[in-house]
Nucleic acid binder design. Sequence first.
DNA 1: AAAAACCTCAACCGCCCTTCC
DNA 2: AGGAAGGGCGGTTGAGGTTTT
Length: 237
Amino acid sequence: MGRSPCCEKMGLNRGPWTAEEDMTLIAHIERHGHSNWRALPKQAGLLRCGKSCRLRWINYLRPDIKRGNFTSEEEDAIIQLHTMLGNRWSMIAARLPGRTDNEIKNVWHTHLKKRLESSAAPKRKAKKPVAMTATAITQDGPNSAPVQPISSSATDYSMASSYETTESFSPDSQEFQIDDSFWSETLAMTVDCSGSVMEAGDTIVADGASMRSSNADMDFWVQLFMQAGDMQNLPQI
DNA sequence: AAAAACCTCAACCGCCCTTCC
DNA sequence: AGGAAGGGCGGTTGAGGTTTT
């Protein structure tokens, strides 16, 4: 169509978001909302494209995002929905609260598609346990010395944290799940208590590079889950 | 221990759709 | 009615991490 690019590329930051940028974006959206993505970066003082801001918010910073591994139920739902809807990731995501289309798309391409393919045709060899699949997730609890580490990504840290800090995980059960009530409470807490949570988030990255795989990030989620866990017994703030 | 192969996922790109004027 | 602007979506990429050789 020959349209002008969504934003002026010159002088704009690209690549992984820094903690400072995240904080700036979160603070701005909490204060002013995001009625205009294109104008937002300028208003917030971010050297980012509006689309980039939107993507970062939608896929990572939004408080209602459900972090962590997909449960077997969620994976089954994705498979079923994909057979019905095809690659309409946003529609699939709309039926999986807390999950983003990007996340679902990634899981599909990295795990579920392969799983379906391998179930159709016998696989040569498993180089690595399919970390996020239902078998890996539902196998055992975190304290049961799994044969292989589930994964090492930041999201997995968060899941490991949730194992230990919520009532939802039962080491004896074969099924692991985070119920919706937990997430709704977590969401409410994140929104209502944004101040304290964001303080935790302030330590997300020490070197300003990326949130992934940092201990501070793990601490953030541990704190988040612990606070959410505490809220089972405490009145809403 | 080191290199190679493989995996994961955040982020970007470009197109399409909707809304506004 | 039609063009412009903005939002949303799906496909793709590549850096960084993990596992295997």
